[in-house]
Design a protein around this nucleic acid. Structure first.
Lengths: 333, 333
DNA sequence: TTGTAAGCGTTATCAT
DNA sequence: ATGATAACGCTTACAA
């Protein structure tokens, strides 16, 4: 079971390790005869190059790390997919790690990964990249592209939120409400800001109806139920992500109300699930898979530049996707 | 940006590399004074151990590889999540790779991964493990545990399919149909076998109503539409996975029929989406995340044993989850 | 307790 | 075109 080494191959083929290495890497010049013998020996001995040894001398790992706060749900799986596709296209391996609630855990994982990757892709909505202890190029996904020292790719949450609220208003909603993400989450903060800014612009002086959620379906359900209990029941809700929106729709229907007639709902992300709620969920589409691909490309640039700060940050604008959950025919938008 | 080495740390702390190594690994005995100096120097120089060098001498990578046919959809993301959780608990890193349509591609990836992992987790529904060129312990997920030479963990597809069909029959369905997965997919084959066996047992001599799908929502939609076109329209359909079942439900409703009154539907997998179709989808639950965890544990055993064949294979039995899509009150089951 | 030194499997730089 | 051989960064006997 113990793997054979290049030395073994060289001996079997009756050449030096140098020649064997040349053949295996297709570098330098070798006789056709030598090439054939080496290839044959390698095949026969089931030779597999030892990447550790190779990386030791080349100081390249051909591997990138991907850190996610969690792996649950379609949002993250789409990120992984995008990154994986782009990485494969460039012959890079992908080291994945999920479940990083807090900053300390993320830092620990980053440290243990640092020695084995050429660069890191980090999605840590709670931390700005500056706080992370890194020795390799790093690109953050979804932090705030502006003001951050590290190279970043992200979503224009503020603009997306504004679009969502205006869409609700254009569909005749007067009592606007928001179910937010966790207060410490940067994306959630921006979406909330967008809601607050636009809601008061649409209806100046109105009180803000906001309830904090946790990005889970259950959290959305709870928050919606609380919102419905108010004396001034909202007739249009902007929910900070699709998972919570799915829970919110359930809560509304359980309260005996109709979507969108009594309460219109719009989410954020456009995860595959959004088409399957009933009614289908209006939302703001973020090309999540594409986001992952671009993040990887950006990281590759950073690695090649040797320094992340060389590369320009990117902001992706979400697009409005109108489905049944927000159509009230009062107005077209 | 170039990382510092253990040698640098040793020099700064004014000790030998051996002592520095001892401190970093907590192995052997060192004076408190030395320990402190080394730790301080390491911190200051942002020392990160070079995994390649380490693995070169220990011949351990502390990394396992996970190969998936694709990363699209909740089924795979749950697998990744389960494996990731279990791997983290054991301080193992996870190398992920998706998109392996055919055997050749899978073989290529396995080869390029072999040199950098201690073991491999492979989910390749098209190939039996024997065909794979491997030099490290390997555990297959979802192949056929029986008859395979390699260590495997899998789902009892046949039994699950039988349960599904009996459930439909118990709910008064007389004209049973099946939307299968791709013909070359091993899991799909077993589910079909289960359908065929049970359907003819429930209604001997009846013709089999079967349509092949591809495990996608669109595929399920198409297959269902074709099934509804038949003169002897089915009144109960067992769909080989939940994604296709979601598409099938849509097709039934588009045809102006009701679920489950006109056509009862039951799926397979119990992905998170299943609770959100309307009506909610009855299905056979496979604890996908749990499956991933167990697969990793099994791989660890195989690695420790030094040989996969030492470890016993595992078969997981799916559980019936009854939701609205199959309840017709004719009979309780 | 600490230091010296011999590898681990590759690549790369020299000579030949 | 080919073969010695010196790194690469680390662990681990073995000495001191």
């Amino acid at each position: 079971m113990k793997g054979s080494t290049l030395k073994d191959v060289a001996r079997e083929a009756d050449v030096s390790v140098a020649s064997a290495s040349r053949v295996m890497n297709g570098i330098g010049t070798v006789t056709e005869d030598v090439r054939a013998r080496v290839l044959e020996a390698a095949e026969r001995l089931r030779y597999v190059p030892h990447w550790g040894a190779r990386s030791l001398v080349t100081s390249r790992t051909n591997t990138v790390g991907l850190l996610l706060p969690d792996i649950y749900g379609e949002f993250f799986s789409e990120i992984i997919r995008g990154v994986d596709i782009a990485a494969r296209a460039r012959d890079l391996h992908l080291l994945v790690s999920g479940s990083h609630g807090d900053l300390a855990e993320a830092a620990a994982v980053i440290e243990s990964m640092s020695g084995r990757v050429d660069g890191l892709l980090v999605m840590s909505p709670v931390a700005s990249a500056g706080d992370l202890p890194v020795t390799v190029p790093l690109v953050t996904i979804g932090g705030r592209p502006d003001g951050s020292e590290r190279c970043a790719i992200g979503v224009d949450n503020f603009a997306g939120a504004c679009t969502a609220v205006r869409h609700l208003a254009a569909n005749g909603c007067r009592r606007l409400a928001h179910i937010s993400g966790p207060a410490e989450n940067l994306d959630a903060q921006e979406r909330f800001r967008g809601f607050a800014a636009t809601a008061s612009e649409v209806d100046p002086g109105a009180e803000l109806r906001v309830r904090e959620g946790d990005f889970t379906e259950e959290g959305g359900h709870r928050a919606m139920a609380a919102l419905l209990d108010r004396a001034d029941r909202p007739d249009g809700v902007f929910v900070a992500n699709d998972m919570m929106a799915a829970g919110a729709i359930l809560a509304i229907k359980e309260a005996g109300l109709a979507v969108p007639e009594d309460v219109a709902v719009i989410g954020f992300d456009d995860i595959p699930l959004a088409r399957f709620t009933s009614p289908p969920l209006s939302t703001l589409r973020v090309g999540v898979c594409e986001l992952g691909k671009q993040a990887l490309e950006m990281l590759v640039s950073a690695i090649e530049a040797g320094d992340a700060s060389e590369v320009e940050g990117i902001v992706i604008s979400p697009q409005l996707v109108v489905r049944e959950s927000s159509k009230r025919g009062t107005n077209t938008n």
